Structures are given as structure tokens and as C-alpha cells.
Simulated scan of single mutants.
Amino acid sequence: MKLIFVFTLTFALTVSICAASGSRQNSTELDLLFDQLFSNLPDSIANTRLTVIPFTENTAQGKGYGESMAEFMIVKIQKFGSFTLVDRGEFQRVVNEISLSQSGMIDDSATVQIGKMLSSQYLLSGSISLLFGKYRITAKLIHTETTQIIRSAAISVNLADLENFSKELLGESGKVSSAVFRSLIVPGWGQFYTNHNVRGAINISACVIATGATGYFTYQTAKYKSQKDKHIQEQSVDSIVKGMTEEQIYEHDNETKRLYYNYSRNFDHMKLSIIALGALWAINLVDASIAGFQAKKKFQLYFSGNISGKSLETGIVLRF
């Protein structure tokens, strides 16, 4: 049992550390991309209008990564504080005017046209391409009037890392039902899915240990029950056929009591371990739902542009 506990805990913690390390590495790479674009910019750029364009996805199938990167840049730029961001509602209105909304494709010439129509001094655009088994993310800061590229930067990220980042940013991993369903199948999976790695490791370790204990006590219960039944049967045959002395009967009775005690004790332990396993599984589901709610409460930027006559409404939605 001790070896099972040590192995399980070591495995779970290893998985947790690896998952956390991968998440931190991906975040660091994206932060590096932003720093390369916006570090040490000239003072003349301060407080100018900036439009962020969804990145172009040069892949076989669009997966929303371009929108994810645009949202990431918007959040970072807001914290950076050196630009006035153009509202997404205004951006969508201009896109509709130049008939790009249906195709969703925005080339370089359209990008500059959008910037000029929005009176935006600078544009941030980019592309995502699949190259040698990794996603190559390229971003560039463009001066609208001269179409000059002020800054450009590029990074490479793993396929799974970009997918997980996109899910988290756009809210897929914030769905409570997704976390609960995963933890229902495998304890701790929902916590890992929402990047609560330590809690995931604790839940999976506790449930695996409880499962191991249940299996162990179930085996011991069956073993002592078989020995007890066999011993009682042998005692009955011996007493009838061979004729047992009182001393032999006393010894057989003591052995029967010993076997029954071991059977009864392991049976009680088996019941307790089953109850403990059920309780831990239920706690795991409750914790997964909490992890899902916590992921959902993360600030996620959703712009909505509704045009009614000349009025324009934009909104930022906080999901709870």
C-alpha cells in the first residue's frame, strides 16, 4: 500500500508540474511577442489611436486562433496604456462597409484601408501559419498613413499550447459542464483542464489511493470468507466421519472465530473504503465545478457592435 501511495503521488505531481510548466512556457512566449513589438517605442506614438486586426490564419482550417491572438493583444495593450484602442464596434462597422465580414479575410491593403477609415494612426495585425509541426505567429505594428512597418516580431509555439491558450482565452475551458464531465470520467481531469493543476493532482491521488484500498480490502474479504467457509465445512465433516475430541473441536472453533474476525474486519474496511471512494469522487466533482466557475470568472473580453441608425453600442462582457 505504501508503494502504491508513493507511486501514485509521484506520478500525479509529475503530471501537474509538466502541465503547469507547459502553460507558463506558452504564456512567456506570447508575452515575449508583445514585448518585442511594444518595448521602447518612441514617445511620439504615445496616446495615438490603434486598431487591432484579427490575425490571419494561414492554415487548412480556421480554429479561431486569429481572434484569440487579437483578444490577447487587446488585453495586453490596455494594461500597457500607451495607446487609445479603437472600439471593436467601430471596427466591425467598417469591415461591414467594405464587405469583408462574410469572407472574414483581411489582407494588407484592406488592413490599411480599415485604419484610414477609422482615423487610426497605427494598426496591429499578424498571421498564424503551420510550419514544421509548430504554429508560427507573426505580428507587425504598421503606421497607417505611410504603411511603414514600425515593428515586427515572430514566435513559434506548439500546436497543443496554442489550442489550450485559445480555449482559455475564448472561454471554452471556462464551461462548468466541461470540467465536471471530465472529472466524472477521471478524477482530477476537470481541474487539470481548467489549469488548477495542484488540485487536480490531489484529487486524482486521493481517488486512486481510495480505489486501491477498496480493491485490497475486497480481495482480503473474499479470501477470509472462502477460508472461513471451507474451515466450517471441514469441521462439520470431521466431526461426523472421524469423531473429534473436545480439544479438537475447541481448536477448530477458535480457528473459525479467528477467520470470521478477519473476514468481518476486512468487510467493514471494504465498506468504509467504498464510502470514502464515493465521497472523494463526489468532492472531486464539486471541486471541478468550482474550478469551472473560477475559470469562467476570469476576465474575458467580448466586444459586441450593434448598429441602429447612427448609434453604435459597444460592450465588454464579464462572464460569471
Rank of each mutant, 00 (worst) to 15 (best):
Y135C: 09
K76W: 02
V94G: 08
D87S: 06
I149R: 14
K79D: 15
G115N: 09
R88K: 15
Q92N: 12
V157H: 04
I114P: 08
L85W: 02
L123G: 05
V94R: 07
V86G: 00
L130K: 10
L130V: 03
N58V: 01
L118R: 08
V95S: 06
R136W: 06
S120R: 06
S44M: 02
A60Y: 07
E71W: 07
Q92A: 13
L131H: 03
T48M: 08
P54R: 06
L85A: 05
L50M: 07
S82T: 10
G62E: 08
I98T: 05
Y122N: 00
S119P: 10
A110L: 07
L85S: 03
K134N: 14
T138L: 13
Y135K: 08
I128L: 11
S99K: 12
R151T: 06
K134I: 03
D87C: 08
L130G: 07
S101P: 05
Q102K: 09
Q113P: 07
A60T: 10
F55T: 03
I77M: 11
I74N: 13
M117K: 14
F72R: 05
Y135T: 08
I114F: 03
R151L: 02
Q61V: 15
G64V: 06
V157D: 04
S99N: 08
L131S: 10
A153Y: 00
L85I: 02
R93G: 08
V94C: 05
Y122I: 01
V75Q: 09
G126A: 04
S120P: 01
L100H: 05
M69S: 15
A46G: 09
L131N: 08
F83W: 05
A139H: 12
L141E: 00
I74S: 10
K134M: 09
T138N: 15
